[in-house]
Design a protein around this nucleic acid. Structure first.
Length: 427
RNA sequence: GGAGAGUUGGCAGAGUGGUAAUGCAGCAGAUUGCUAAUCUGUCAUCCCGAUUGGGAUGCAUAGGUUCGAGUCCUAUACUCUCCGCCA
């Protein structure tokens, strides 16, 4: 959410930002005029309330003869006040409806563009893996090594689900342990969080009101399934006023994640790339309201996940996401994409975003600034730590050997019982 | 699922129908020669006002009763205790 005063004072800038983010349909003039009419209504209804309060307070010292007249007058004022407050609530609802759909403004550093075709590759690290044999795709590798039950599990759990077993099942957890240890070493608090959420945190995160059809909802309990631990961590401290000394707060949140993938019909239906339920270790940062500070954390989060890909010895590229491809909450976004040999392209593994104060305004998460004692909204940032099974796609394919075994990179071996290779033919 | 108790500011904690005490911490200023103390102000949101300032709202949430609600009523959420069921 944005500051309405800032919007009113910078209308052209906001409209420019809306165009860049692809939300040109939002009517800023209407929003501002609603704000003005709300303020007028507030002023007049508050004057009424003041008069009424004075009358009410005078009753105690009034004589019994005077009281009926005062009560009658006060009642009359109360009715008028009620009318104005109803009108105010109606205007406020219209205002909120628009305000909840106002995206964050993009960073001046972000490339301007309309969709993912205009994202900019900032750098490539590592070379696409070369093979002196015909590489198999990850599904073939799983079948070859008895690592999965993809067809059977579809009968039980439906499409876009996965079941992996033996060393691959261990590998999935090993990757998370590697990342959790790394994050802990960087000062993050490891936190395992639920995957169920009430509705309010979804508005706080900025998932609602934008993409309801992506979320699993259980009407019996009025509860949602979380698509990421970011949802939970973003609301964990909602409505608090933190001390600046507590900042930054760094969370490494692990949770099962659920996504309907309604907008991805027919896409990535094979294998582990896009499934309804997966596991994610999420990096989440709460820091003070200072753009230099949150940009510093943004770079730090990016560096950590680059290190994860380097530890996993995967070739990757860093993509700076353009204004039109960023989600509504985002100020600036990088995606990391790892090389997938059989697809001959880079595929997304990480998404790293600076949200500035946009989420904090929604969750009402603030801190008291040491410099002047003022209460300010925090900045929040999030990035994938690692998401499985998706990461296993480039992992299996890049590290496969001619005999169908898969090499375990050195950094991961301590989490895999020291094994250098896994697979049926591994010694 | 049943029964009971509870939820007041950053924290602690008073307040059973008539303007939300007090303490601690934080911040700002003043003052005293000492690692600190003392005093004053400030310390949730919003509206009006150029400023001093004035006012409205805020006691878990949403309604209701009342001239007037932290206080009474209803529903909901959450926390704690006990019972039941259970991986």
């Amino acid at each position: 959410m944005l500051d309405i005063k800032y919007i009113a004072e910078n209308k052209e800038l906001i409209e420019d930002g809306l165009r860049k983010k692809g939300y040109a349909d939002i009517n800023v003039s209407e929003l501002i005029s609603l704000h003005l009419s709300i303020n007028k209504l507030k002023t007049s209804s508050q004057a009424l309330a003041e008069e009424k309060n004075k009358l009410s307070n005078s009753i105690k010292s009034a004589t019994p003869d005077e009281r009926p007249a005062i009560i009658a007058k006060s009642r009359e004022l109360g009715e008028e006040l009620k009318k104005q407050q109803d009108e105010l609530a109606a205007e406020q609802a219209k205002f909120d409806n628009i305000m909840l759909r106002m995206p964050n403004m993009p960073s001046p550093e972000s490339p301007v563009g309309k969709d993912d075709s205009e994202n900019v590759v900032r750098r490539k690290v590592g070379e696409p893996t070369k093979f002196d044999f015909e590489p198999k795709d990850h599904v073939e590798l799983m079948e070859l090594n008895d690592w999965s039950e993809m067809e059977r599990i579809a009968k039980v759990s439906g499409s876009r689900t996965y079941a992996i077993k033996n060393d691959l099942a261990k590998l999935e957890l090993a990757v998370h342990m590697l990342v959790l240890d790394k994050l802990a070493a960087n000062g993050f608090t490891i936190i395992n969080v639920p995957s169920i959420s009430k509705e309010k945190p979804l508005y706080g995160q900025g998932y609602l009101p934008f993409s309801r059809d992506e979320i699993y909802y259980m009407p019996e309990d009025d509860i949602y399934l979380s698509g990421t631990a970011e949802l939970i961590l973003n609301s964990l401290r909602a409505d608090e006023i933190l001390s600046e000394n507590e900042l930054p707060i760094l969370y490494a949140g692990f949770s099962p994640c659920f996504r309907r993938e309604a907008g991805a019909a027919g896409k990535d239906t094979r294998g582990l790339t896009r499934v309804h339920q997966f596991m994610k270790t999420e990096q989440f940062v709460i820091c003070k309201n200072d753009i230099a500070e949150s940009e510093k954390w943004h770079q730090k989060l990016l560096a950590i996940s680059e290190e994860v890909l380097q530890d996993l010895e995967l070739p990757y590229q860093v993509l700076e996401v353009c204004t039109g491809d960023m989600g509504a909450p985002k100020y600036r976004q990088y995606d990391l994409e790892a090389w997938v040999p059989t697809q001959h392209c880079y595929r997304e593994t990480h998404s790293c975003s600076n949200i500035t104060e946009w989420q904090a305004r929604r969750t009402n998460l603030r801190y008291r600034d040491n410099a002047d004692g003022k209460v300010r909204y925090v900045h929040t940032l999030n990035n994938t730590g690692v998401a499985t099974p998706r990461i296993l796609v480039p992992f299996l394919e890049n590290h496969q050997q001619a005999d169908g075994t898969v090499r375990i990179p050195e950094k991961l071996r301590p989490y895999m019982g020291g094994k250098e290779f896994i697979g049926k033919n591994a010694k």
